[in-house]
Design a protein around this nucleic acid. Structure first.
Lengths: 301, 301
DNA sequence: CTCTAGTGTTCGATATACTGAACAATAGGC
DNA sequence: GCCTATTGTTCAGTATATCGAACACTAGAG
């Protein structure tokens, strides 16, 4: 749990926690129990961050929240990565054109982080709010690994039962389908909403690895009713999530756009939205000097 | 130099450095010498931040820059402090109306941090760029202390010669003038540009306390040609910086807006711009539920 | 190709930050 | 106003991160 620089790790654990729960402020004690850090140690960390302006302390309520220096750092980070500003404009366009919510996310290790959203959140999914971190485990985050190396795919599989070859084969087929289409299409299901509820709990106590693995296992349980392998144009679907990747100069996925909504839509409507999204991310890829990795078989549509 | 949580402090020293120098990326060794941190220690810190997505590592050039997680944290911080979004709109308005650059800054300890700007930077002053940190020492940052307690003012005086009563009296008179006007008006001078050049050096090596104190002493030397105590409406001035405060609910200065430009302007033009700025910050103060502290002289009860 | 300049990693010895519980100081409830 | 619950600070012992130098490793120049 503790890396080679524990103080730094915990300092940013605080930041991550406050980012995911930006609506309220927290006292030292609250953060101590939520993050599993000794009060004495955390006190020193919080004082350091407050001195630097990265946290703001409300001396009235003795609470901490993210401070102004974090805004400056965020602006500098955004200025350094033009992708996100380019994508923001396109996301607004997509959200307006499809009447869907459009969120942007990045992969960080074995998680994905929601960075931005556009349009009205018709679905109140916890994992769709900016600042949220969602485990990057099957079948979540297909677009982040579909064009990746075998090693990346294996890491994505994670703790899947090694002996369950059929599950692996199924997922590989799904990823192949994602490459062909240029985007991933997933269906809304009750499982998905169950995951959403669990993530709320996980947000409240990120250090609880038992909750974390529970979420991961349930996310894997989504598989059955989650994938849309072949859409029937005239059929009706409950709703859909469509995700497409933006590639960087080295061919890696540096950003992903997800359309969520399309409630009670026909297969044709879903496929049309998917095409629109995929062409938009391709446009963004070109705008930022990105490169789509060549698939082994077939051509990206 | 090292506080009770050195790893956390240094981790954010890296962030601060990358924020101030967002244009390029830096290698481990560069950061090591620039920040005065042991390479071995820094390596652990950078790895931790990179794992969290707060830094992005270019494996090609082995360089580090601010990562996507920092953007999410910045957005969360901005969402938590509505002041900055309210102010941004007004800053754009002011910049357009006065043909000046308008920057927003906050006070963090004994420094002020530039957060946002609007309009074209007619003056290429280093200290006016977002992400920059400028020492909060006389005569800089008058608006941050003019309404503050005596303790805050004394701290602002800093290492001024205690025996030099005339300097203190002069500064107190300046602050009184700022309170009366509702804003601070300062004039461009060669000294100012000299400070700007020194700040570039300081940015390159923030750990050098000798440079830091040198900057502070030169800033104090500005005093003579910096203050505009009484403007002559028909006189011409080389240029001006006008700063006004935004107050929080507790009466403290939570944000400051500075208009820079007004090259070769008359005293009347400068005073008009000052009035416009002061009324705007007052409006923002009210929008965010702020309160202007009552002046200490002539208080009832 | 060889050489150089620079980068990042390894390693044991030392100093230092972390821990945990008891303490003190605040805020909230009636 | 008093009491209670919770907050945040203090302190010494122990575990641990940090330091500095020597080591690999890459990239680029001649």
């Amino acid at each position: 749990m503790s890396g080679p620089a524990p103080a730094a790790e915990r300092a940013f654990a605080v930041v991550t926690y406050l980012t995911a729960n930006a609506r309220r402020s927290f006292t030292l004690s609250e953060l101590s129990v939520a993050l599993g850090i000794n009060k004495a140690s955390l006190s020193a960390i919080l004082a350091t961050l407050t001195d630097g302006g990265y946290l703001a302390r409300n001396s009235q309520h003795r609470t901490y929240s993210l401070g102004p220096a974090m805004i400056a750092a965020g602006l500098a980070a955004a200025a350094h990565n033009p992708v996100f500003e380019v994508a923001r404009v396109e996301m607004e366009r997509l959200a307006a054109a499809t009447a869907c919510q459009c969120v942007g996310s990045v992969a960080i290790g074995q998680e994905m982080l929601i960075l931005a959203n556009a349009g009205e959140p018709t679905l109140r999914l916890q994992q769709m709010a900016p600042g949220q971190r969602v485990p990057l485990t099957p079948p979540y985050g297909e677009v982040f690994v579909a064009w990746g190396s075998d090693d990346e795919v294996d890491e994505w599989f994670g703790h899947l039962d090694k002996t369950d070859a059929s599950a692996h084969d199924h997922l590989r087929a799904v990823l192949e389908r994602v490459r062909q289409r240029g985007c991933a299409i997933n269906l809304l299901s009750d499982h998905l909403f169950a995951v959403s509820r669990l993530l709320v709990e996980l947000d409240a106590a990120p250090h609880r690895s038992d909750l974390r693995s529970k979420v991961s296992s349930i996310i894997r349980g989504l598989e059955d009713d989650y994938e849309l392998l072949d859409a029937q144009p005239q059929d009706n679907y409950r709703g859909a999530l469509i995700a497409a990747p933006v590639f960087g100069p080295d061919g890696s996925v540096i950003y992903a756009l997800t359309l969520s909504g399309l409630l009670n839509a026909t297969g044709r409507q879903i496929l049309d939205a998917a095409d629109m999204l995929a062409s938009t991310t391709l446009y963004i890829t070109q705008q930022v000097g990105g490169r789509v990795p060549l698939p082994e078989t077939g051509v990206v549509g």
